[in-house]
Design a protein around this nucleic acid. Structure first.
Lengths: 234, 234
DNA sequence: CCATAAATGTCGATT
DNA sequence: AATCGACGTTTATGG
């Protein structure tokens, strides 16, 4: 029997434990010799082949949108993607488990503590970076990308602020580039830099010091406290 | 009943479909309201909570090594990591499916990458970068890491070549550091730089131009054609 | 739809 | 343990 369908029409997850071989061919080739693995097909059509270990990442996969063609008789699953040039072929030798489960749509995930929120909080409270700071603009545009925050300090000088969740050496490099560009603009120069993060790696601090960039480590919970002063009344 | 164990002692994958809420607290906070989800526990102890869609990435997860404590009566799974400061708590409201499957160890995945070949192809055909280029050395060593290709151009000057699959701003930074180092060596200086990639982002081009670094976009298939002239006979 | 930057990135190699 | 670079990165976001 040959069964073809757009996987997105399947409003459920299918879980199969099977001895199988797998071959992915796309930007690279990644073949898998025979072994028992978990094959997961989600409602959106994505297919993932998991081993019993190795974190959450599957050994092989195909993201949606794609087309899943199952040849039950031959035990061959072919996953192809319209408009893309990659494919996944699963050859099933022995099925040890096969079940399908309705799950409905997920209400979704909210994430707190990411860089975007930190930047927003700091934009509302530039004082948390340094006393007297005033925000000029968020996402100040330059030819090499937007500067997170452009401020003026208590003395009225321009300050470029780079915000990261985890401060590493790349962030210092990034800020250095911005400073180079901003300081080539006579209407802004001199511009100094401040590197703000929840934590800053020692190497990043060394590099920043070498470039006369100030480092500020901010407490995210405290920042939220500043942002919501009503919570502090109790 | 209270059941505690090192998850790594469980040599199988456990699959549960359940209505549940999930809370991750670590580098960020990511709570999930009640819904039906797939909970997967692998032999290495990692726990992943999947929705029925959204590619292969779970909504929430905890990587191994960790400690899974299941309070069956209360329906609470607590995953904590010794030595790390993050945790995952799953509160199960209704179990719709629960099965455990032996899978054994996977022989593993071999990846035949397209990317690593680019450097080799260019090393064999420096002309593809610029007419008259001659290879001095691949992976030319410096104190700050190996330069992908060191060449001499038609005029006999040294050229440092950085090869990327996708040319982004980081690659320009990397090449800049190499050039700084190489030009401090009187026996090599002056050394110019060429940034080679399949595609180069506009921002990377701007930065490269600013640093007098040439950009070359190469066609990978064409490169392979050059490398295998016998294919061109037909 | 393209382009860019963030990510609980993950993963492996190397110091 | 920490750092660096690559990834079939994947994913979200803004133009």
């Amino acid at each position: 029997m040959r069964l073809a369908r757009s996987a997105s029409s399947l409003a459920a997850v299918r879980l199969m434990i099977a001895r199988c071989t797998v071959d992915y061919d796309g930007r690279l080739q990644a073949p898998l010799p025979p072994a028992v693995r978990l094959i997961m097909v989600k409602a959106d059509g994505c297919v993932a082949v998991h081993a019993d270990g190795g974190a959450y990442k599957p050994l092989n996969w195909m993201n949606a949108p794609n087309r899943l063609v199952i040849d039950e008789a031959a035990g061959v699953w072919s996953v192809t993607a319209p408009g893309r040039s990659d494919s996944l072929v699963i050859r099933i030798e022995e099925i040890l488990h096969d079940s399908t489960h309705e799950m409905g749509t997920d209400p979704g995930l909210r994430k707190d503590g990411v860089e975007a929120q930190m930047q927003a909080l700091l934009a509302e409270n530039p004082d948390a970076i340094e006393d007297g700071f005033i925000l000029v603009r968020r996402e100040f545009p330059t030819a090499i990308g937007p500067v997170d925050l452009l401020c003026r300090d208590a003395s009225g000088n321009a300050v470029a602020v780079e915000v990261k969740r985890n401060g590493e050496i790349d962030g210092v490099e990034q800020l250095t580039r911005y400073l180079h560009y901003l300081n080539s603009d006579p209407s802004l120069a001199p511009v100094r830099g401040v590197f703000v993060a929840r934590t800053i790696k020692p190497q990043a601090k060394v590099l920043a010091a070498d470039r006369s960039i100030d480092c500020v480590e901010v407490d995210y919970d405290e920042l939220r406290g500043i942002e919501s002063p009503e919570l502090r009344l109790f």
